[in-house]
Nucleic acid binder design. Structure first.
Lengths: 200, 200
DNA sequence: GGACAAGTGTTAGTCACTAACAAGTGTTAG
DNA sequence: CTAACACTTGTTAGTGACTAACACTTGTCC
């Protein structure tokens, strides 16, 4: 499933749609970075991209959505499922996140940093991200459950939530340090703080 | 509690303000529960409380704010600071939360449940709550740091974030079970899942 | 080449939220 | 007791995110 080659092939219409979508997103990010998120109206973004504001909303459900990454969650969930059965849930999540992170940072580091900074510094975007976090946690808990072939329970949900919290804390620290620190090290430290548990 | 006799004494104006504020909040919650949050407009709430929509916003900065609890965070932070120095950060947070929770549940259980259900089931309110969570985490991390007389670092931030995540997971589970389960037990289980750390 | 469907713009509207000003009411000094 | 005042409120007008309805254009497919 997915890899939807069946219907929307390389038709002219599809090409235009993809181009429009990209144009909206690029102009939006450019404007957000120059003028600030709150100071940029959807109307401006639409105008810059050469479309009406209705078209904007046909491509993105909300103004916030234009900043979101998506697609990361399923990737991580798959990585989790493929971790060896011997690993503890937390270690499996850590390893999966590290693997995914390494791949992303290797290619898109600057883009990821810019976007993360936008989200971390803006309250509205932050809230939106947290909102999506609930979905991420469910996916991760389910992946953990699948891996152990048992149903999702409170324990797995808590571990997934804690791991997500650790990741976000690392990301926030990354942005606070203006990107000078190594994100992977920060993530490792964050998970170490979790793994140490109640010890000193 | 707090009977703030110092400044805003029993002036007629203060009484009216307090009454208006309570009226707005009560009508708002009533309408949210009967019609649903999204289906209730600020105008309706204001009308039900016998004020204009401007007055509503003078008492509450946003429509979401009318559901918030506030005041809990500082209380918990204080409880954390008072935990014995020998305890691990996570244990201190757990104990402090349990203490605060016991007090709140003893008096306001039903109100807390109703409000929590509202927040957990509505996306907009959920997002708002998560947004406030960032503040909570900072406060908790600071309280932990104060307790150990050292600066806030990544480790303490992660632990505070994880504890908050555990609490929210417990609250969500509570609502999912329609309040039949004991919240304090759920919180204990959630923290146990954290404390176990990477073990099986 | 023509019918159909998909994508878009225009217009008008709702709702959360804000700014400015005018009017009413509690407070307080004389 | 009353007049100046400070505070609270309502009204009006406006912005910006987001939606619904309809007409128009333009790929697509036979």
């Amino acid at each position: 499933m997915t890899t939807d080659q069946t219907k929307p092939a390389g038709g002219l219409r599809e090409q235009r749609k993809a181009r429009t979508r990209r144009a909206i997103q690029e102009h939006a990010l450019r404007l957000f970075l120059t003028k600030g998120y709150d100071e940029t109206t959807v109307e401006e973004i639409a105008a810059a991209a050469g479309v009406s504001h209705m078209t904007f909303f046909r491509y993105f459900p909300t103004k916030e959505a234009v900043v979101e990454n998506d697609d990361y969650d399923p990737l991580i969930a798959e990585l989790v499922r493929n971790r060896p059965a011997g690993e503890s849930p937390l270690t499996a999540l850590h390893a999966a996140l590290r693997t995914g992170l390494d791949a992303v940072l290797a290619t898109d580091r600057d883009a990821v940093y810019t976007r993360t900074r936008l989200v971390v510094t803006n309250p509205a975007l932050r809230a939106r991200q947290w909102r999506n976090t609930a979905t991420t946690q469910s996916l991760l808990a389910q992946a953990l459950a699948d891996r152990e072939q048992r149903p999702v329970d409170l324990r797995l949900r808590v571990i997934a939530a804690a791991a997500t919290a650790a990741l976000i804390t690392a990301l926030t620290t990354w942005v606070d340090g203006e990107g000078t620190e190594d994100l992977r090290t920060l993530v490792d430290q964050a998970f170490a703080a979790l793994g140490a548990g109640p010890s000193t």
